[in-house]
């Protein structure tokens, strides 16, 4: 395992443990909590193979579902944003990008906001849709996903600010 892979593996474990032990305990209004673990999918290197990202997303969601005894909504939501990530990179950062990851200083703040915002909200929307799994609960799905999106987005930007951004 090279240095980059070790760093990714360590980030995977840290975010998973933090999510299970810390963020999942901060429950507001019954079921709202910050989903910070998706920072792993957001920060995964852009040049990575899309199938690899999809598989990693599936494993991340599955691990969280198994550790938190949740029915499987994290797996589906995380797998989906991992699969949609290449399309969201193209939409928010441009079709031809030479950035290596979200840590690149050359990414404009607005583009970074779009990238994180689209993937985070998509995740929350899929998460609550799977959790409720009923068309009659559309209003709860919308409102809860919006509140959780704002909360998760704030924490994700906070975590991002802890990293030093480079010129890659």
């Amino acid at each position: 395992m090279n240095r980059a892979s070790s760093r990714l593996f360590a980030r995977f474990l840290c975010l998973l443990i933090l999510q299970v032990l810390v963020f999942n305990q901060w429950v507001l209004f019954g079921s709202i909590f910050p989903c910070v673990y998706i920072f792993f999918i957001l920060s995964y290197p852009f040049e990575a193979n899309p199938q690899e990202v999809t598989l990693v997303g599936f494993l991340l969601g599955l691990s969280l579902d198994l550790l938190t005894q949740s029915p499987g909504a994290h797996t589906i939501a995380t797998l989906s944003i991992a699969a949609f990530r290449p399309a969201v990179i193209a939409i928010s950062l441009g079709l031809i990008t030479d950035f290596s990851s979200i840590f690149s200083r050359r990414i404009k703040n607005l583009n970074l906001f779009y990238f994180i915002g689209i993937l985070t909200w998509t995740h929350q929307l899929i998460y609550f849709t799977v959790l409720y799994f009923s068309g009659e609960a559309w209003l709860q799905i919308l409102t809860r996903s919006l509140v959780q999106f704002i909360l998760s987005g704030l924490f994700i930007f906070l975590v991002l600010s802890l990293y030093s951004r480079d010129d890659s």
């Binding site: 899309p50 199938q51 999809t54 598989l55 599936f58 499987g72 909504a73 589906i76 989906s80 699969a83």
Partner: peptide
Amino acid sequence: SLVLYLVLLGFALIFLSNRSFY
């Protein structure tokens, strides 16, 4: 990529239906 996503989604849905009666 799409095939892999659909296969894993299938697994995730089976996992979901096995874990939750609802």
